[in-house]
Nucleic acid binder design. Structure first.
Lengths: 236, 236, 236, 236
DNA sequence: AATGAATGAGTGTTCATTCAT
DNA sequence: AATGAATGAACACTCATTCAT
């Protein structure tokens, strides 16, 4: 049930032009929002940054919040695009997961400012736009759900189906956490360490030993035996 | 090096009264901030909600941002107080962790709106207040660090010391996640399920099995062999 | 027709106390007014400077403007007192004038800040108080009128009676000018030079030669002979 | 080193319009300032008087103090322009002086309210604007310095060069005095009388007779002998 | 299609004054 | 007589939005 992008009305007839101008608006606004926040950025500043007049800007949007929506949507789209790059249809669920998680975290790192922006300003969106943006977030999350399901199906990941949604959310949050907790995390970890440790945490949670004798060894993971799994009464 | 609370100057001499009125301000403001956000709440609205005049309110604060600081600090203090309740000095690290995590998540659930508020409005604090608030957040986080360290010491948790910081952060975020992702999570899980599943994820990551031979391959994981586990230098 | 001091009502019965507290108020306010100006000084600041509460202060005045009135009146009284010191009942008008002018200018120099204050803030007084203050100013001015008249009478000053008022005003202004033009004057002159030059200007304007042969030498004055007087067709 | 006018930034791009609107602001504000003083005049009142909205007014200025600066500068400019009208390049220094003084006093009389305004409100200007305004005042004053110097050069005025600055200041103040002492002066003198008497005072101070021996004694003058005149080092 | 001047409701904040204690 | 907490009208200034050109 992918909801379609909320269309923003424009006075301008030529759709190509609308598209182009809106890209300019996004480019101009995003850095201002990152630097000063949505509320402390004025429409005049945005227009100036875009290189056209305030009147012209208002030909392509209706309210200041439209700009925020445009920006959030753009960031989400970029995020989705970049995340999709990492999905390898051929690979096992587990390999896919490991790769996608690492890729996801790296994207988060690169787009740190923008992810943070979404985090902090999404709440300022008008209701309808908010719904759309959250829906988009869920779509991205569902990419991880697909991967997890594949891993369950191909036996490379051990996970209750009922936990799929949660784990996908968890992965998303782990990525975002690298941005909104950077003030704390970066004191102790760099990106690669972060990727390794969080991946390990996930895999231990998701990789079930095969039982009996464990040909396992979540090596690199806090050593954990089959037994560990057993008593995992309340395990995932 | 716990930084001390930034004192907000007041025109009023009676400290008892200052204390009381500021509590009123917090009580009045917090719901407005939750409902409308900091920027869209007016100082006049806050004063009205508190039941006194705008002039009176300004006898107890200096700027609108002081109100935000008061509110954030109050929430943090409550959070810290409630979290400390759960720590049982007698119990093992592991039991303590399980109990503290569950407790933490329940507190987060109860204080959902307030946690969310902190999440969304912290960035609007003036620099100095922001530093203080983040410092407080770290203090709370360190409660989990203590627990984890105890678990390492008493052997009930298996975790590299270098991962303690990360795990503590992770636990904090998991709790907050229940608030800022509630729009997604509550569709599929209730609080108790959430507690169970997340605890499981953590424990699997932290509980060491007693041994066994492992034929494994943390495929996809940054290549590491069984041996790697043993000396698990930089592992979790 | 000396108008009597406008009485400021007070809640307090004991007149001694009223007198004492008002002196405190003047002492506290005057420096604040000098430093920040009347409008930018708050009643709270005044009370704090005086060492008592705002409530107490308002027991002794009715409005903030009363404080200004108190201050202006006090300065004027001091000015008058000091100027009177210089008047020598025995001396000739001319000697008296020279001495009084020098004394006046020195007083102005010492009380520079206060004179300036009167100059700049008098206009903020309520109508009635303004009238009183201006009247006081005229009384002071009339001290010079007396001296000039005496000089006419004893023949040491040559001046049309109709010019007495103007010259007295002129002398007053010359004194004040040393305060409100100090930004320019002090670049080129010190107080003693100023006194000498202005006195010379006045005396030349006021001193009539005895005619015929002049054994003169308005030494120190732009050399001027008896002839100068002659062509003084348009003289004062 | 004439300092250039401090430019006030404006949001409006069309400089012609800025010029025009600022003239409107000056016209609207000046009478209000004269009537009520700067501090008691509201920005809204100014805007209303100008015939546009408060928002529009703020497109052309940055702060209320800018309006004061605009007004002061305008008055000064007008003053300077009118004073220059009176300077006759051909005439002797003395004639020039007589004419310029009379003209200056007449201008002061006509612009009485505005001169008074400058006198009373200049101190409310922000530091930089104050510096500029004072500098302009000095430029105007220097017009009189020029005239005096010419008079010295062509022998029509007898004045020590070191007194030129003072006399120019004195002339300026005499003009302003007609405005800020009008409450006293107009009781006894009309403008023409004032001009005549003050001119006489000045000329006596400045006009040198052709010689002759004088038995005089500027008694009371800082003791100086005839000889003193001759070497009259520091004399006027 | 583009401009940018105009708008005015709304904002955070101040401060002279009052009055119950 | 002294206090100081309470008041709220008033203030300077901002800024999203409109609309005539």
């Amino acid at each position: 049930m992918p909801q379609h992008r909320k269309p923003i009305p424009s006075e301008i007839k030529n759709p190509k032009l609308v598209e182009e101008r809106r890209r300019q608006i996004i480019r101009g606004a995003v850095d201002l929002f990152v630097r000063k926040g949505f509320h402390k950025t004025t429409t005049r500043e945005i227009a100036r940054e875009c290189g056209f007049s305030i009147g012209t800007m208002y030909e392509y949007i209706q309210t200041k919040e439209d700009v925020l929506y445009l920006v959030c949507d753009d960031i989400h789209t970029e995020l989705e695009k970049r995340l999709k790059e990492a999905v390898d249809e051929e690979a096992t669920g587990r390999d896919n997961l490991v790769r996608a998680v690492a890729h996801h975290f790296r994207v988060m790192d690169e787009m740190s400012d923008y992810v943070l922006l979404i985090y902090q300003e999404t709440k300022s969106l008008p209701k309808e736009a908010l719904r759309y943006v959250l829906q988009k977030e869920e779509e991205i999350t569902s990419l991880f759900e697909r991967i997890l399901e594949k891993g369950i199906a191909d036996g490379t990941l051990h996970l209750e189906p009922s936990s799929v949604k949660l784990m996908a959310q968890q992965i998303m949050v782990m990525g975002q956490m690298w941005t909104f907790r950077r003030w704390a995390l970066r004191k102790y970890y760099n990106l690669e360490e972060y990727i390794r440790l969080q991946t390990a945490l996930l895999l231990r949670g998701l990789t079930t030993p095969t039982g009996g004798d464990c040909h396992d060894g979540n090596r690199g993971l806090p050593s954990q035996t089959c037994g560990a799994v057993r008593d995992g009464g309340q395990s995932v």
